[in-house]
């Protein structure tokens, strides 16, 4: 296991590359989801305002 983690002396180069990759994958999943929920929230607000306006009229 230690041998595997040492990566033949290249550990300081190999593991940061994999770490950055996982970070980019997670950021992509999270931001895409956040963008969709934010859009749905904005539309919900817009709909609620319209309903309010038509109720007042």
């Amino acid at each position: 296991m230690t041998e595997f983690l040492q990566m033949g002396g290249y550990a300081q180069y190999v593991w940061p590359c994999f770490g950055l990759t996982f970070a980019v994958l997670i950021v992509n999943i999270v931001t895409a989801r956040r963008r969709l929920t934010a859009q749905l929230d904005a539309l919900r607000l817009q709909q609620a305002r319209q309903a309010q306006r038509s109720a007042q009229a």
Partner: peptide
């Protein structure tokens, strides 16, 4: 990820159409 982002982009472009109103109601919190 493209499909997930595409859904947000489509909602943005179709905000005034009737089907989006239905989608918003269906996912209402």
């Amino acid at each position: 990820i493209l499909l997930q982002r595409l859904r947000a982009e489509i909602l943005d472009r179709e905000r005034y159409s009737r089907w989006v109103g239905g989608v918003v109601q269906a996912t209402a919190s």
